[in-house]
Design a protein around this nucleic acid. Structure first.
Lengths: 226, 226
DNA sequence: CGCGGAATTGATGTGCATCAACTCGGGTGG
DNA sequence: CCACCCGAGTTGATGCACATCAATTCCGCG
């Protein structure tokens, strides 16, 4: 999009090719000096930040094609940690070199702004989810998000494996593990999906979408104003 | 920071000077074409997005010195609306011209990346707040955030007026109005602050900070893992 | 001076966390 | 290959923080 083949080649030059990483490996840890952005080629990664007194907040799960580390530019230091969830291939993009390149190639600069902006937009959606949705809506939104992102990479949108634990899902969605587990059971009973351990099959995407929209009586905080 | 006086002058050239805006005025509305970023000089602005079926989520309150509109770059369209909360002076920064300038001035480009990245970091904090904190911690965090941001602009960190309603605060924090009201009363009774209508005086910043840290037994979701 | 929305305060309800017990499956070592 | 073990996941019972419902009161404004 807006890059000619020569530009792509120059971008390609600065990418450090991926070595395979394994479950539990860190791409970086919170408070590490910021050097590079990372792109998931295959596999998956979770990012998380410590919360006061020992807990942690899962900030996101990152699937193939997704970029990690943008939040570190500001302080030139990583504000969260990134841990590999399953055997994965990850590319590294030294940021200093990327910055030079974006200054020289306007369309690439624009692309970079868009990526950063997009990340903000995604966080915003997540705020809405945590601020206004109930447990059922959150889990449905989570499943659909995975589905759509996998589909975008040419993978099945309705049949996939979860690389993260129920605990991590709950943490990410602001729910207890037990709630996540109960909802999986309920969704399965309702014929929306099939769950077998980590193996997920979404049977009724439309029904899931209507759940997210806010089916039930969430009259809560509908209006507001002055 | 990193800009010489000539650069500053060039940046200055593209800024459209502020006309005064009034309570209820919109800087932009959701789905407007994206043209400019906005900087609050004086006053305050809230941004909010519609949630499915009529409700809305307050995304943020913007005080003097703060930048609005970064989330619109991605889709070249505003994803949220921005409404002025009180008589305010707002500067407009045409993004196309800003983009040219950042391509020409590396330090300005870096600055721009930092601003976008910072926004992501702030959203992240908010995610942690909504995902892991109870009502008391949320309101304390909100008050301290206002306090710190005002202080940064040379205003009093402990004596200020709220330009937003309790309802908007509740919406922003994912709480009911009544909860916000009750907490104000409680904080006052505990000698942490004084509340008179919109007039706020923070009497014990340290105590508020220790509240945010997670005073009580929020054992919830402390650990996690595979 | 009286109206109407904002805020406060109290009473009640409920969604989800928490606590507790049990099951399941996968890995390990004998 | 099987017996054991241990953490992940499920399921049920209980409790609580906060939403919701319902009056009042308060204040800004015409």
């Amino acid at each position: 999009m807006g890059l000619n083949s020569e530009d792509v080649e120059r971008l390609d030059d600065i990418v450090k090719r991926a070595r395979p990483l394994h479950r539990g490996d860190f791409l970086f840890r919170e408070s590490d000096r910021f050097r590079s952005l990372f792109v998931v080629k295959t596999g998956s990664v979770k990012t998380f930040a410590p919360s006061p007194e020992g807990g942690e907040q899962v900030l996101g799960f990152h699937l193939p094609g997704e970029l990690i580390g943008l939040d570190a530019i500001d302080k030139d230091m990583h504000a969260c940690s990134a841990k590999v969830l399953e055997t994965s291939a990850i590319c590294e993009l030294p940021f200093a070199r990327l910055e030079e390149l974006t200054a020289a190639i306007p369309s690439l600069q624009h692309q970079m702004y868009r990526l950063l902006s997009k990340e903000i937009g995604q966080d915003t959606e997540m705020l809405l989810l945590l601020g206004k949705k109930n447990a059922e809506e959150r889990l449905a939104a989570f499943l659909l998000s995975l589905s759509q992102r996998l589909h975008k990479r040419g993978l099945s949108p309705s049949d996939f494996y979860l690389s993260m634990s129920r605990h991590e899902i709950g943490n990410y969605l602001g729910l207890a593990v037990e709630t996540v587990s109960r909802l999986f059971t309920r969704f399965q009973d309702d014929g929306l999906m099939r769950v077998d351990r980590k193996h997920i099959q979404l049977l009724d995407l439309l029904a899931l979408e209507s759940l997210v929209g806010g089916s039930s009586q969430n009259r809560r905080q509908q209006q507001q104003q002055t």
